[in-house]
């Protein structure tokens, strides 16, 4: 009986000690977690290191606008010089962030607490709209899917899903050429099944310049051009 109460007393003492020490460990962990959040949240323009992305008209117009602004402020710089300056600054920033994140990387990767918050950084002034057409033997091209259309709606439930929208948005950028080729092949495989009498499929983007508010109010129709055109025969896929 005496031994039992002594061991209960001992257990209680240990529990008390643990309760006193635990907040210190929790505090250290929380400091580590929060510093990881803050370091990870520092903008790291990783995509900017891919110079093919700089060829996009939306990016070009941003560089031109900033060049004009800096020149007005007295810093004589050309768009090419500004691009170089930004590129090297981005490289340094990404390298510094990578170094600062090293103690947190494994933790954030395993717990799903990575930070990347570049949301609507800049409007895309030259957006692209996905068009998919099929052609029956000897016939004309027929649109089967046009993004945001209510008439060409083939597999709309899939293409219009937010996750596919994200991917389709990316395919129009030069750094996603390979992924776009994979996507086109996948679309062709589905079309071969869904349109048994079609001979060919054409996948492309209509890239246009967004209308200014004045143009939209005046009823101007957006102008643009088709690009990223991929045409594939469907016969071999059946």
């Amino acid at each position: 009986m005496g031994a039992e109460s002594a061991s209960r007393f001992e257990r209680g003492r240990w529990r008390g000690r643990a309760a006193a020490v635990l907040p210190h460990f929790v505090a250290l962990y929380v400091i580590y977690h929060v510093v990881g959040i803050l370091v990870g949240s520092v903008p790291a323009p990783g995509d900017a290191l891919n110079r093919t992305a700089w060829r996009n008209p939306s990016v070009r117009s941003e560089i031109d606008a900033w060049t004009a602004r800096l020149n007005r402020l007295g810093w004589r710089v050309t768009p090419a010089e500004l691009e170089d300056t930004c590129y090297h600054a981005c490289r340094r920033l990404v390298a510094a962030q990578h170094a600062a994140l090293t103690p947190f990387q494994a933790y954030q990767y395993h717990t799903g607490t990575q930070q990347a918050w570049s949301m609507f950084v800049a409007p895309h002034r030259h957006p692209s709209l996905l068009h998919i057409d099929v052609r029956r033997a000897g016939g004309a091209w027929e649109p089967v899917y046009v993004a945001r259309s209510d008439t060409a709606t083939w597999r709309r439930g899939q293409f219009d899903h937010i996750r596919f929208r994200s991917a389709i948005f990316r395919f129009a950028w030069p750094q996603y050429r390979a992924a776009y080729a994979d996507f086109a092949a996948w679309v062709a495989d589905r079309a071969a099944d869904d349109f048994p009498d079609a001979a060919e499929i054409r996948i492309r983007y209509f890239t246009f310049t967004s209308l200014s508010p004045e143009q939209a109010r005046a009823g101007v129709v957006p102008t643009g051009a088709f690009d990223h055109t991929v045409t594939l025969p469907l016969g071999p896929r059946r």
């Binding site: 941003e62 602004r69 609507f120 950084v121 800049a122 409007p123 895309h124 957006p127 709209l129 967004s210």
Partner: peptide, 23 residues
Amino acid sequence: KLSNCWTPAGGFSALYYILQQPS
């Protein structure tokens, strides 16, 4: 949000143009 469009220099036009993005 470093784009010109988010700032007074770009006329605070960012939301308008973002809403014009079909994606």
